[in-house]
Amino acid sequence: MAKITFIEHNGTSHVVEAENGMSVMRAAVDNNVPGIDGDCGGECACATCHVYVEPEWQAATGARTETEETMLSFAAATQDNSRLCCQITVSDALDGLVVRTPDGQH
């Protein structure tokens, strides 16, 4: 289990409990967190689950996958800490994770 905080572009925070093994995208969608769509269901095919990982959590969430890298290369408003959160798997090590959502996924 991990407690994950999603901070919307407008500053609103949403704290959700996520089970190990699910993706961070799924945790957001299951709890109706605004700003994360996850239209493709986690196939890394749509780039609608873009988040910014808080710098202190970048190491724990790991590196982008190859497909994720190419999907992100043309996403809007990417930064060094941009991830597609369908590619981040929840584990105990991510308890306390904080990510921010961009101003729109489309």
Partner: peptide, 11 residues
């Protein structure tokens, strides 16, 4: 298998 082209095209 060219996700970057797809994303560019969508833009």
């Amino acid at each position: 298998n060219r996700a970057s082209d797809h994303m560019a095209a969508r833009r």
